[in-house]
């Protein structure tokens, strides 16, 4: 039989993304506190962002499709059109930013560069046109923005991204 676990590809070291090596408990408390303060400071911005988003008239989620529908090979309704706008907003106390980089980096994951509080969020493209994130591999979203917000929902108030991609 073949040897165990032939590793493929470079595996990024977390040492590059972990800013410091503090004892676990104080580190968490420190992080929660910083998050909390950031969240308070950002709430005004968040309100402003909501107004901005309303003005953008976001698309509705795609309608449910019967399970046994034949595959069309086409993106689902609601999948992002070319030129899906970049975003930079506060969402639940987190800064989420995203821009399409497909034109200058065809190998970028999902064709987008998305960050949460400055740390990269790995995005992948699903064949139906949707986007999956490394935080939630089992649900796809119509836009990178929706995937980023869902990742923030899943992270909750006390977790941050490690910066690890796929």
């Amino acid at each position: 039989m073949a040897p165990l676990l032939n590793r493929v590809g470079p595996v990024p070291s977390r040492a590059h993304t972990a800013p410091c090596q503090e004892p676990p408990a104080p580190r968490l408390i420190d992080r929660v506190t910083r998050r909390h303060l950031l969240g308070v400071a950002a709430s005004a911005l968040l309100a402003a962002g909501s107004v901005f988003r309303l003005a953008q008239a976001p698309r509705e989620a795609s309608p449910p499709v019967a399970l046994d529908d034949p595959p069309s090979g086409e993106p689902l309704p609601g999948a992002p059109l070319p030129g899906e706008p970049s975003f930079d907003e506060m969402y639940r106390g987190r800064r989420i930013q995203g821009e399409s980089v497909a034109s200058r980096d065809p190998h970028a994951p999902g064709g987008w560069s998305v960050t949460v509080d400055g740390r990269p969020l790995g995005l992948m493209r699903r064949a139906d046109g949707g986007y999956l994130s490394t935080v939630d591999h089992f649900q796809s979203y119509a836009t990178p923005l929706a995937a980023a917000r869902a990742a923030v929902d899943e992270l909750g108030p006390s977790q941050a991204l490690s910066g690890r991609g796929h």
Partner: peptide
């Protein structure tokens, strides 16, 4: 040690 989030738990 190998997660997409930074929590160690």
């Amino acid at each position: 040690k190998e997660g997409v989030t930074d929590g160690e738990f």
